[in-house]
């Protein structure tokens, strides 16, 4: 446990992470990021596939 002094003079104890904890947290963060990117990718591709060519039939593009 590391110690730090609050500005009012009160001592508060801080948790300092071990190397193993820092390393595993970083690995978890990377894994979550990759999963989120994959999740977005799945929905992007699924949307394009489900709409098919109709995805271009947006009123904004086709209004004469």
């Amino acid at each position: 446990m590391a110690e730090a002094r609050h500005k009012e003079g009160e001592i508060i104890e801080l948790v300092s992470l071990t190397d193993k904890q820092v390393k595993s947290r970083k690995a978890r963060n990377i894994a979550i990021a990759l999963c989120l990117v994959a999740f977005v990718g799945v929905f992007y591709v699924a949307t394009v596939v489900k709409f098919g060519p109709a995805i271009m039939q947006n009123r904004g593009f086709n209004q004469q």
Binding site: Q21, R25, A27, R28
Partner: peptide, 8 residues
């Protein structure tokens, strides 16, 4: 306070 050491 319990900091996880769990890996992916």
């Amino acid at each position: 306070a319990r900091v996880s050491e769990a890996t992916p």
